[in-house]
């Protein structure tokens, strides 16, 4: 099964790294959409079918928390899981995301295994790359 994944981060290199982590986790057949801030992400959501949103917190124009709140307030989007990937590691910030409906949280710096584990919890096992799901062995980025 493949998925449509929206990556939201103002850092193009970081979007690239997260995309690689997804591919290494067995989601290589998935379709990736990218946005540089929350506003762009809401536009992508309005125009594309999206299965999961993976977002940074600190971004210009609209940050990840505001985007999360808007997604959860929208009847069309509110069931889409949102995973936050950010450097903000305080309990206060994590609680804020989770209270507003985030499906999960990954703190930078992260390993590809952490991305795989949380996405697998939310989406289930991917079958587009069986080999990468065989074991818990380390990924090769």
């Amino acid at each position: 099964m493949t998925f449509s994944i929206l990556l939201v981060d103002d850092s193009m290199p970081m979007r690239s790294v997260i995309k690689k982590a997804f591919k290494a986790a067995g989601y290589s057949g998935s379709q990736f959409h990218e946005a540089a801030n929350g506003m762009e992400a809401l536009e992508k959501l309005a125009n594309h079918w999206i299965d999961i949103v993976v977002t940074d917190f600190t971004m210009p124009k609209m940050n990840g928390l505001e985007m999360l709140i808007r997604i959860k307030q929208n009847d069309l989007f509110k069931t889409i899981p949102v995973v936050v990937v950010t450097t903000e590691g305080s309990k206060e910030k994590i609680d804020q995301f989770m209270k507003n409906g985030a499906a999960g949280y990954i703190k930078k710096p992260f390993t590809p295994e952490q991305i795989r584990d949380i996405i697998t919890d939310i989406l289930g096992e991917s079958h587009d790359n069986e080999q990468s799901n065989d074991s818990d062995s380390d990924f090769d980025f």
Binding site: S11, T87, E88, S90, K108
Partner: peptide, 9 residues
């Protein structure tokens, strides 16, 4: 960004 976030947490 990662350095600062990680340090303060």
């Amino acid at each position: 960004n990662m350095l600062a976030g990680n340090t303060f947490s």
